[in-house]
Measured scan of single mutants.
Amino acid sequence: MQRVNMIMAESPGLITICLLGYLLSAECTVFLDHENANKILNRPKRYNSGKLEEFVQGNLERECMEEKCSFEEAREVFENTERTTEFWKQYVDGDQCESNPCLNGGSCKDDINSYECWCPFGFEGKNCELDVTCNIKNGRCEQFCKNSADNKVVCSCTEGYRLAENQKSCEPAVPFPCGRVSVSQTSKLTRAETVFPDVDYVNSTEAETILDNITQSTQSFNDFTRVVGGEDAKPGQFPWQVVLNGKVDAFCGGSIVNEKWIVTAAHCVETGVKITVVAGEHNIEETEHTEQKRNVIRIIPHHNYNAAINKYNHDIALLELDEPLVLNSYVTPICIADKEYTNIFLKFGSGYVSGWGRVFHKGRSALVLQYLRVPLVDRATCLRSTKFTIYNNMFCAGFHEGGRDSCQGDSGGPHVTEVEGTSFLTGIISWGEECAMKGKYGIYTKVSRYVNWIKEKTKLT
Rank of each mutant, 00 (worst) to 15 (best):
R43E: 07
F31V: 15
N113Q: 12
C141R: 00
N5Q: 12
M394K: 03
C155P: 00
I344R: 12
A317H: 00
F360K: 14
K347A: 14
D95H: 14
S169K: 08
A37K: 09
V359S: 14
V331T: 05
Q90E: 08
R46C: 05
F251R: 09
S329Q: 06
E323A: 12
R298C: 03
T84P: 14
L20V: 11
A192Q: 09
G355F: 13
C157E: 01
W118R: 01
R449D: 09
C170F: 01
T290F: 07
F424W: 12
G398F: 03
W118N: 01
N393W: 05
T445F: 03
E193A: 13
D223V: 07
K51C: 04
S329W: 05
V77R: 13
N343Q: 09
V30Y: 15
V326H: 11
K293S: 08
S184R: 09
T332I: 08
T81Y: 08
S365A: 13
T194R: 10
I316A: 02
S49E: 15
A250G: 14
E270T: 12
P235I: 08
N222K: 10
A250Y: 06
T225A: 08
E291D: 04
L14H: 03
I334L: 05
D223A: 12
L103W: 04
H415Y: 09
E159H: 06
T84S: 08
V447C: 03
T209N: 15
P12T: 14
D405K: 14
E10P: 13
L24A: 11
R43D: 09
M394E: 02
A233H: 06
T84I: 04
T85Q: 10
E418F: 08
V326C: 07
P301C: 07
A192M: 14
T84D: 09
K459T: 15
E433A: 13
C134Q: 03
F221Q: 06
A307Y: 09
G409M: 13
T215K: 08
S169C: 04
C119D: 01
F388I: 15
F399H: 12
L244V: 06
Q90I: 10
N393M: 03
C141K: 00
Y371Q: 12
Y22C: 11
C119K: 00
R358V: 05
L346D: 02
V153W: 06
I309S: 07
F388V: 15
T271R: 14
Y444L: 05
G363H: 13
L14W: 12
C69I: 03
F31R: 11
C382F: 03
K362I: 03
V353E: 02
N80Y: 05
S148P: 07
V92I: 10
V353D: 01
V248R: 13
E98T: 13
